[in-house]
Simulated scan of single mutants.
Amino acid sequence: MPHFSIEYSANLDSRVDMNALCALISDTILETGLFEVGAVRVRAFRAEAYSVADRLPENGFIDMSFRIGAGRSAEEKQRTGEAIFSAVGAYLAPLFTTPHFALSLEIREIDPDLSWKKNAIHPRLRGK
């Protein structure tokens, strides 16, 4: 259950290929070896209404949230966060050439007693 959400300011539509960014993040998550293919979800949500810092119209943001199931060590979570943040930072490097962009990532562990799931994809990918 790694669910990755990207919230981004609408003014990035012409500057960032969100489908490519989602694919990059998905690949990076899988490269850690900590998550099953059938569990990975990466999606992006456009924020039409937003206010960033001093409200200059060119200010933009990407806020990333990664919800994962329990059971990974602090070191594994740290390594995963660093891998994702590094890959995304490199992909978005052109946005950092101006003083109008902010990027953030937070990893949250989900309480297994308060999470319900039903997944028909797992059996297919596991060959069962």
Rank of each mutant, 00 (worst) to 15 (best):
L56C: 07
L56H: 02
P57C: 05
E58F: 00
G60E: 05
F61I: 10
F61E: 10
F61K: 09
I62W: 09
I62Y: 08
D63I: 12
M64G: 02
M64I: 04
S65T: 04
S65P: 05
S65H: 15
R67C: 09
R67T: 12
R67H: 08
I68G: 01
I68N: 00
A70H: 03
A70M: 03
G71I: 02
R72Y: 05
R72F: 07
R72D: 11
S73H: 11
S73V: 01
A74H: 00
A74E: 02
E76N: 07
Q78D: 12
R79N: 11
T80P: 06
T80G: 07
I84D: 07
A87S: 09
A87M: 09
V88S: 00
A90Q: 15
L92W: 06
L92R: 05
P94W: 10
P94H: 11
P94M: 09
L95M: 15
L95E: 15
F96P: 05
F96C: 04
F96S: 09
T97M: 10
T97S: 13
T98V: 07
T98Y: 01
T98I: 06
P99C: 06
A102E: 04
A102S: 13
L103P: 06
E109R: 00
E109I: 03
I110H: 07
P112N: 11
P112C: 14
